[in-house]
Design a protein around this nucleic acid. Structure first.
Length: 502
RNA sequence: GGGCGCGUAGCUCAAUUGGCAGAGCAAGUGACUCUUAAUCACUAGGUUGAAGGUUCGAUUCCUUCCGCGCUCACCA
């Protein structure tokens, strides 16, 4: 770093700014590659009509990623938007001052180059430089040039380096943006309105999870970071926003794993006058289109499996247990409907909880193909409507792919009296020590008491969906800054202070 | 929280049974006006994650701690 700080003075002595200002480029590097990438040397060279040697003048800017110097001339690669273009700098071509600047370049510096396009002897599209401008100095050295940056911890902590060094990482996050854009566009086309509801909530609800707690000083109250936006969004359907959605963060104070980050992004949407059957059909359409928008096809590769979002499988939870059971003691349809059999195969208290438990242990990780599992036990679904013919079950389904849950949806319970009873059931569970049981949300019950239209609601985990559509096996690879333990002192700053004092 | 594994130069990695801590890239100096993992010569770069222990001697063996990864548990 000492050398590089000294180099700043050399750059300034030549009359350049080490930290430049505005640079009006004529093309981005990807634009040049797209526009001229297919042009031959002859097409770029001065034409017979006398187009002149500067037929294709360009001004570009980018980060220096490689330099090859050969005495009085040399090459460098500039990177912008994840793509690289070579420049050729010849002492005769740029003059002594710019050539001296070229000799001072470090890998990682950001420069502007004005010149014209040509092809080298080996055929690479290159900018023949005529004028250089210095735009920003790097004080630290870049990751190694052909292994890139591989240390997983550094990649997560210093994501900017990961993005510079590993172009495929950039692609993952661009795909994530496409997924979100596709969902927004499809929802907007169907008349959904995007809203924002509180992330700091006096009562948390809408899911079973432990919350983060924070404090508001002036009001002197504790607030919870939301575990789900659900109850607020349904208040809005009461208010006549019949199609609403929200894409934003939820926070759950739980363990970290390759499938869990404490803050994660959910899409939740609510549509009045439909039910879970309507949402199953809608989800299949929505996700198939997202897959196309993000990857160009409905069939994606994940961990060696071909997943086709154009072909959703559907099973009831009970069917799934029968169908996917492996090994000894495979149950029949009558077994999974039998409370005694269920309780014998789980240590849960009720038949419904036992069924869900058995499903999670025997089925969930086998749901590789995109699958919808429907008809859930009422015990684990305090906010969904019961099936009229089967009151032990609710009109709920979850979407699975690659062995992960990526969505959860149900016909919303809009009977205020029944909702009040369900909350009281949850309160009883809470008193028995279940930290994750729902709190009574009196305001929500009051909202329902004004009448909510029959409504279907759904949540889709954006991070997990992105994992599947980008082939990422850890959720940390699809979150730019995943939660890590704090790093401790960063000695670069101390070094900078010492060098500054000298 | 449990189990397994990893931590060596800025980066990517070596180091035999416990016997002088190394290479490539990056960096510095010099040569070179079409190179592309540029090449060639030379130079510098280390608290081997931390602390303790065993030993004549520890990157190597032991203990504890720190950080990270995988995995199990937890997590509709």
């Amino acid at each position: 770093m000492k050398q590089r700080l000294a180099r700043i003075r050399e750059i300034e002595a030549l009359g350049y700014r080490a930290y430049g200002r505005r640079y009006d480029f004529s093309h981005t590097i990807p634009q040049i590659l797209a526009e001229y990438g297919a042009k031959t040397a002859e097409e770029l060279a001065p034409g017979p009509e006398g187009a002149g040697p500067k037929a294709h003048p360009v001004r570009i800017a980018g980060r220096v990623m490689a330099v090859r110097r050969m005495g009085k001339a040399g090459f460098a690669h500039l990177q912008q938007d994840g793509e690289r273009l070579q420049i050729y700098v010849k002492k005769d071509g740029v003059g002594d001052r710019d050539y001296r600047l070229y000799q001072l370049l470090d890998i990682g510096d950001i420069i502007g180059v004005e010149g014209y396009l040509f092809r080298t002897r080996t055929g690479e599209l290159t900018v023949h430089a005529e004028k250089l401008e210095f735009l920003s100095k790097t004080l630290l050295s870049m990751p190694e040039k052909w292994h890139g940056l591989e240390d997983v911890e550094t990649r997560y902590r210093q994501r900017y380096l990961d993005l510079i060094a590993n172009p495929e990482v950039r692609k993952v996050f661009l795909t994530r943006a496409k997924i979100i854009r596709s969902l927004r566009r499809q929802l907007e086309e169907r008349g959904f309105v995007e809203v924002e509801t509180p992330m700091m909530q006096p009562l948390y609800g809408g899911a079973a999870a432990r919350p983060f707690v924070t404090h508001h000083n002036t009001l002197d109250i504790d607030l919870y970071l939301r575990i789900a936006p659900e109850l607020y969004l349904k208040r809005l359907t009461v208010g006549g926003l019949e199609r609403v959605y929200e894409i934003n963060r939820n926070f759950r104070n739980e363990g970290l794993s390759t499938h869990h980050n404490p803050e994660f992004t959910m899409l939740e949407f609510y549509q009045a006058y439909t039910d879970y059957r309507g949402l199953m059909d809608f989800s299949a359409e929505l996700l198939a289109q997202v897959a196309v928008d993000a990857t160009g096809t409905t069939a994606v590769e994940f961990e060696g499996h071909k997943l086709d979002f154009a072909r959703f499988e559907r099973y009831t939870m009970r069917e799934a247990v029968v169908h996917f059971w492996e090994g000894e003691g495979r149950p029949g349809a009558d077994d999974v409907a039998n409370a005694e059999w269920l309780c014998r195969h789980s240590d849960k208290q009720t038949a419904g909880e036992a069924l869900a438990d058995i499903f999670e242990r025997h089925v969930e990780d086998k749901l590789i193909q995109p699958t919808m599992i429907y008809d859930y036990p009422v015990e684990i679904s305090p906010l969904s409507m019961r099936k009229p013919a089967e009151p032990a079950f609710v009109e709920r389904f979850e979407i699975y792919a690659a062995g992960m849950e990526i969505g959860n949806a149900f016909t919303e319970l809009n009977d205020a009296q029944e909702q009040r009873r369900r909350f009281e059931m949850q309160l009883a569970m809470r008193e028995r020590g279940d930290e994750e049981a729902h709190q009574m949300d009196a305001d929500y019950v009051r909202a329902l008491a004004y009448g909510m239209p029959p409504t279907g609601g759904e949540g889709i985990g954006i991070d997990r969906l992105t994992m599947i559509l980008t082939g990422s096996k850890s959720i940390r690879d699809v979150i730019l800054f995943p939660l890590l333990r704090p790093e401790g002192p960063i000695d670069v700053v101390n070094l900078m202070r010492e060098l500054d004092e000298q």
